[in-house]
């Protein structure tokens, strides 16, 4: 269960064990509405459905009922200057079903969107504070030119 190299498994050989799995998974906000107990992930390309199930159960202790995966095609676009085609990497998506009674809602990670005025006030405050620091630093040395200390 990892992208690393392992000796080949043959019948009767010892079970291959993974001590340091290097797969990644990221929970993404589903672009299309899903039932409340379905969670969407993007994951390493090498992961199988069994890997995903084991990963979530063993590392995150999440109950998994069912896993579906698909590979999303990376978008292609033409280079604006020379016109050759550039393709983004493909991504593997996993749709994980939780038990019927559990549900997961993607949280609102950016609850407060700062307005233009707030940003402006913040910048003004930063500038004022910086100037005050500068004045404080040069209080002890009157007559020193402004460029002397950075």
């Amino acid at each position: 269960m990892s992208t690393r190299w392992y000796p080949i498994y043959q019948k009767g050989g010892p079970q291959l064990r993974v001590f340091l799995p290097n797969f990644w998974m990221k929970l993404i906000k589903p672009p299309h509405e899903q039932p409340p107990n379905i969670v969407q992930f993007a994951c390493s390309m090498e992961m199988t459905k069994y890997d995903i199930k084991n990963y979530l159960e063993k590392i995150y202790n999440v109950d998994v009922v069912h896993v579906r995966t698909r590979i999303g095609l990376g978008k292609t676009k033409r280079d604006p200057g020379l016109g050759y085609v550039v393709k983004a990497d493909d991504t593997k998506y996993a749709y994980v079903t939780l038990p019927k009674d559990q549900e997961f809602k993607f949280p609102d990670l950016f609850p407060k969107v700062s307005t233009v005025e707030e940003d402006y006030e913040k910048t003004i405050k930063q500038t004022k504070d910086g100037f005050k620091d500068y004045l404080d630093k040069n209080k002890e040395r009157p007559g020193m030119p402004g460029w002397f200390t950075v």
Binding site: F19, L20, P21, N22, W24, M25, K26, L27, I28, K29, A42, I59, Y60, L109, F110
Partner: peptide
């Protein structure tokens, strides 16, 4: 071994946060 899983979870968390920030242009 324990530290590896801490790091693994941390990386997954950061990847998730980065993805969502990029999605929302934040």
């Amino acid at each position: 071994h324990k530290l590896w899983y801490v790091l693994l979870k941390e990386r997954n968390m950061l990847l998730t946060m980065e993805q969502e920030a990029n999605e929302q242009v934040q």
